[in-house]
Amino acid sequence: MRIAVLADIHGNLDALEAVIADLKLEAPDLVVNLGDCVSGPLDPGLTAERLIDLGWPTVRGNHDRYIAGQPREAMGSYETDAIDRLAPAHLDWLRALPQLATPLDGVLMCHATPACDETYLAESVGPHAVVLASDAEIAEHLGAGTPALVLCGHSHVPRLVRLAGGRTVFNPGAVGLQAYDDVTPWPHVIETGSPHARYGVIDAVAGGWRFSHRQVDYDWDAAARKAAAAGRSDWAVALRTGFAERQAP
C-alpha cells in the first residue's frame, strides 16, 4: 500500500498539476488531501473543479471553513481574494468536507489537530520563535485514543514526528504556498526556504510505514505573476522564493 498525502493547495493550480504529474511516477494506491484547498489569489475555482473531479478523500481546512461558512465582512484576505471566483457548487463541496477522516485502519486525517483546525499540531509558537513542539505538547493536541498514524497539514512545514508512546505525526508540507505570516497566537513567520510544491508519500512496510517528502518543480514564476496581478506582493514573493516578503533574499 502506498499513500500520497497532499495539504494546503491554496488555489495554486500550477503547483497542484505539477504534483499530479509527479504522482504518476509514484503510482500511489490512494491519494488524500488534508484541506485548505482554494483560498488565496491564484486559481480558486479551477482548483476546486480539479479536486472535485479527482474525488480524493479530503478533510476540511480552516480556510475551507471560513470561505464556505463566514459572511464576507468576517473573512480574511485569503477568502476575499477567492470568494468571487467560486461557484455555489464549489462552496457546497467545501461545506460537505468532514473535519476528520480515517482512510485506512490506524490512520487519521485532520487539517491541523483532531480537535481544532486552527492549531498547529507539531509546532509551538512563542513570542520570539516557532519551534518543534515537545512530545508532551503534541500528545496533548492529539488527545487520547487517536490512531497510530496521524496525517496533518496547516503549518505548511514538512514534518515527521514519532512520539514516545509510538504514535507518528506526518505533515507533507504545502502544495501551494511555501511562506506566510500570521498573528495567532503570536506574530510569526513560516518559511520553507524554497518555492517547490511539496507533498508526502507513505509506504506500508513490514512492521510499519516508510515516509518520504517530495519537492516538485513547477512554474512558480507564473504563479507569482498571478499573485502580483491580484495585488498580493506578499504571495508573489513567497511563491517565487519560499521566503516571506520581509525576509526575501
Rank of each mutant, 00 (worst) to 15 (best):
D53Q: 15
M75R: 04
N12R: 15
H90R: 07
P28Y: 14
R225E: 10
V125G: 08
A82M: 08
P88Y: 02
P98Q: 07
R159N: 08
E137Y: 00
L132C: 08
D84S: 15
A112D: 09
Y199T: 11
M109G: 02
D203I: 01
L163F: 09
T184H: 10
L108C: 13
D117Q: 01
F211I: 14
S194Q: 03
A222H: 15
I20M: 05
A238T: 05
D53K: 14
R95T: 14
E73Y: 15
W186K: 08
G145R: 03
G143S: 12
I202P: 13
D43F: 03
P195T: 10
L160S: 10
K226W: 00
Q70V: 04
P195S: 07
A87C: 08
N33P: 10
A21E: 12
D203C: 03
Q70W: 11
P158M: 07
L25I: 04
F211L: 11
A15D: 05
R50V: 01
D203L: 05
D43C: 11
G143M: 12
E245H: 06
V157S: 09
T113E: 01
A244T: 08
V205P: 13
A129N: 10
E118L: 07
I138K: 01
W220Y: 02
A224R: 07
C152Q: 03
D43Q: 15
V31G: 08
H63N: 15
S124E: 01
D64K: 10
G193L: 06
V150Q: 14
L100D: 08
D8E: 04
R214I: 01
P249Y: 02
L132P: 13
A122L: 00
L42R: 05
W235M: 03
R246S: 13
V183W: 10
Q247N: 15
K226F: 06
D22P: 11
R232H: 01
D221Q: 09
D8Q: 01
A82E: 11
A115Y: 13
P103T: 06
V19A: 03
E140S: 05
A4G: 10
G145A: 00
H156Y: 02
L86F: 08
E123I: 03
R72P: 12
P41Y: 05
Q247T: 13
A74W: 09
E137W: 00
T47F: 00
P98M: 04
P127Q: 05
A101E: 11
T168F: 01
A133W: 05
Q178R: 04
W56I: 00
D43K: 08
C37R: 07
V131W: 04
L6V: 14
V59P: 10
G126H: 04
L108Y: 14
I202F: 00
G176T: 10
P147M: 01
C110E: 03
D92Q: 07
A74S: 08
V107M: 04
D8G: 02
G126E: 04
L104M: 04
P127G: 03
G242F: 06
A18F: 03
S77H: 14
Y180R: 01
G143P: 12
G76R: 12
D221Y: 05
